[in-house]
Design a protein around this nucleic acid. Structure first.
Lengths: 160, 160
DNA sequence: GCCAGCATACTCGGATAGATTATGTCCGAGTTAGTTTGG
DNA sequence: CCAAACTAACTCGGACATAATCTATCCGAGTATGCTGGC
């Protein structure tokens, strides 16, 4: 019952790409070295972000990943879904179908009150994630840790 | 990225025990037959509820499970944690430790803004689950489906 | 008839397999930069 | 000297192992019931 590790990697990597700011792609090897992550596995996760339209990738010698949209058009939920697919924390298997008075034709995911309560909680979670964009995070970081952008660029120059 | 199936089973089973209302235990076999669930596996989940102090179990010929507390003292989060353990949807592995300016002594689970945003969303989820007790659900069911208590008792009599 | 002891049937509980998912690795297709070669 | 073709190195992308977790099952220890036999 956890999101994939890749979610954390993805969010931080998107922010890093934003600090770098160039239009040129950054290879997954360098992005992985930044946090000492397994390069091939990070690559795999970044592919998912490409499929979701959050990053673009270019092959070839100077290829790599770069941001596909503006950061204020990417919410945390977008990243979560890109990595983990359509997330459903609570799983309603409609066991009421087999209970007394249960009908095969009823969709208990919408009528069952247990399911409803769980879904309501899940919606609260999603609402928070939808309400926070990567641009919001970026701004928070700049406010709380003003050195981060330059330190990030510096580290990436070392990894050149 | 999902809660165990057992969560749904556990909630419905607690409500069923409440409809029955007797102090005598109900065996996991009967509780499972009610929804046509795998008996031994449901038993396993109910054991977890016992450990969490939500149910009590008695062995022996007329043994079984029964409610340990009043339903208004059991929240949905209690059940979720009983089944799935201490749940953390987002996993902060503190990759910032390896980044530039990262320090091994800092706890980035509390300082990292990404982690903070994720935790905030998770808190919204938990708040909803904490705010809903099984008694609340019970009342909702009685209001929306007044026949459920009697139908449940009837089915259990059949399974005697 | 009554009581003590016993066999029995049924319970939970934990230890044990099997399936599914998450994690991590490896190699190939494709592309671009730099080099080489011919005019 | 210049241009075009070529080589080589580096990129992503997906197919392939490995590890962890979730799901499900199977027996064994224990207990209350009802029976049995003696008083």
């Amino acid at each position: 019952m956890q999101l994939s590790r890749g979610v954390e990697w993805a969010v931080h990597t998107c922010l890093n790409l934003s600090w770098i700011g160039t239009d040129e792609g950054v290879s997954s090897a360098r992005l992985a070295a930044f946090y000492d992550l397994p390069p091939a596995y990070l690559n795999k996760q970044l592919q998912l972000l490409v499929k979701a339209g959050i990053l673009t990738s270019t092959a070839g010698r100077l290829g790599g990943f770069s941001l596909a949209r503006r950061l204020d058009e990417v919410t945390l939920l977008d990243v979560v879904i890109a990595i983990d697919g359509p997330v459903e924390i609570f799983r309603c298997e409609q066991i009421l179908k087999n209970g007394p008075g249960g009908s095969p034709s009823v969709d208990y995911r919408s009528t069952c009150l247990v399911s409803g309560a769980m879904r309501k909680a899940e919606m609260a979670w999603r609402k928070e994630l939808t309400g926070t964009s990567l641009a919001d995070l970026r701004e928070q970081v700049m406010r709380s840790f003003p050195d981060t952008p330059e330190m990030t660029r510096g580290r990436f120059r070392e990894l050149a």
